[in-house]
Design a protein around this nucleic acid. Structure first.
Lengths: 171, 171
DNA sequence: CCAAGAAACATGAATTTTCATATAAATCTT
DNA sequence: AAGATTTATATGAAAATTCATGTTTCTTGG
């Protein structure tokens, strides 16, 4: 009934949406990420593998967006994974600029295994959390992402907060 | 009504809770983080500043937990911030091992400004998102974090998924 | 009080990440 | 069809991060 009241001497950080999102992400991922490392992968590599189970053969730029990894960084990660035999890189015959990334048989085995583990982990987490399947929280997060990625309510002139600066900060 | 049905050829990544959390965190933070860089700080430095507005004078280890930064990394960040005059480090008179970190006057000015910006940005985001104050999503995230940090439903024997490995993966 | 252990930070080397930019291949322009 | 642009990826140097471990300072049991 009075959750919206903001006490001026409440701490800022633990109530800040961006912190809560980051903290929730970290906390939710911690256990699985250490499982991933156990299997000999670093987190970004796991992300690449997971994405490739969905979109095998995508080009570097697509993969970078999908896996939320900056392009030049992804290039380096992929080169390493190629050297380890987890993925292979083939340049697109239709467009010589593009490099398409594929899981190798070995890579696919590991990827499938980890995706199965991820699904199991997710199921347990959701079950132990609210006893549900996560529809609610997932829908909320998807809606938030869509909202942010679309208009982002920030290009236009409806966003004021971040345009101004020190001049008005203490007024 | 049928959100819970999982189509086996649905993509994995975009429906995976850990991905949704990470993506939501990134998407929600992107704009503000670039504002932070505009003001001459990197994201981890902003986190330190924000935490210090809540708990000025906390020791390195506490700050590391609060800001979600690994200790040795935080030490290096703090040393840089000290050199830039944003914070000062004083060893605790009661316990010589401890280093307490304080905002300098200059640091506080910047921190207060950025926290104000963060609050404004958050308000706008929440208003434009669901027209609300974020109580719902925040409560959900807090609950998730609490759940994960407490029992983590994983030390005990109720967690099976990540203990097993390749042996059972394809059975 | 002393030795052993623990706690809090710092440090260094190896590795990653970032950022700007180079290279190369398509596409467009006229 | 040559030159200008744009797109896709790679590269290199500087900076940041990680991980293991070192150093210093407390704490505790005997």
């Amino acid at each position: 009934m009075n959750k919206t009241i903001e006490n001026p001497n409440d701490p800022f950080v633990p109530n800040y949406l961006l912190y809560l999102l980051a903290a929730a992400s970290e906390a939710a991922s911690a256990r699985f990420h250490s499982h991933v490392r156990t299997r000999g992968l670093r987190v970004p590599e796991w992300r690449v593998m997971a994405c490739l189970t969905d979109t095998d053969g995508s080009m570097v730029t697509e993969l970078a967006r999908y896996a939320m990894i900056e392009q030049s960084r992804l290039t380096k990660i992929i080169i390493q994974m190629d050297a380890r035999g987890l993925v292979s890189r083939r340049s697109d015959p239709k467009d010589g600029r593009r490099v398409r990334v594929f899981l190798t048989p070995q890579g696919r085995t590991l990827a499938d295994e980890l995706v199965a583990d991820a699904r199991a982990h997710e199921l347990e987490l959701l079950k132990s959390f609210h006893g549900g399947d996560g529809t609610e929280i997932k829908d909320t997060l998807r809606a938030l992402i869509r909202h942010l990625e679309s208009d982002q309510s920030g290009q236009g002139d409806n966003t004021v907060s971040l345009a101004r600066n020190a001049e008005t900060a203490d007024s």
